[in-house]
């Protein structure tokens, strides 16, 4: 077996994943490109398991399993975020995500607390009586 073949495959897949993450605007496609990168790493881990003599046997395969689990968790949370984004803005284009929060109407209870806090801040923040020399 020539290990260089799967290694080069993994390297090319990783490059494709990077390209996809940077190229795609759709958040779901970005997640797919991330999956490509993760799989490239998995391939390297599994190939290394056969070619490199390790202290513990099959550590590479165990790691590959862990990465798969991580990928599953990642895709779950990532898709929840994407869906929430779509619900709020009716779009999943990553370069249209606003960086500053738009002022939203604050519920009454929260507003009251905020007013109390600001009032306390004003009285507490005023310096003591002006000291004359």
């Amino acid at each position: 077996m020539r290990p260089v073949v799967p290694y080069v495959t993994a390297a090319l897949l990783f490059g494709l994943g990077v390209f996809g993450v940077l190229r795609r605007r759709n958040a779901v496609l970005v997640l797919m490109a991330v999956e490509l990168m993760l799989n490239a790493v998995n391939l390297i881990l599994v190939t290394a398991d056969t070619t490199v003599r390790a202290q513990l046997p099959h550590a590479g395969q165990v790691f590959a399993l862990f990465v798969i689990v991580l990928a599953a968790a990642e895709i779950g949370v990532g898709l929840a975020i994407v869906l929430q984004l779509y619900r709020l803005r009716a779009s999943v284009a990553v370069d249209e995500v606003p960086l500053t929060e738009a002022p939203t109407p604050v519920p009454a209870g929260v507003a009251g607390v905020a007013a109390d806090r600001s009032a306390a801040g004003t009285t507490g923040g005023v310096d003591g009586p002006e000291v004359r020399g």
Partner: peptide
Amino acid sequence: RAALPRAAA
């Protein structure tokens, strides 16, 4: 405060 594409790049 860059958008995701620029940050990722």
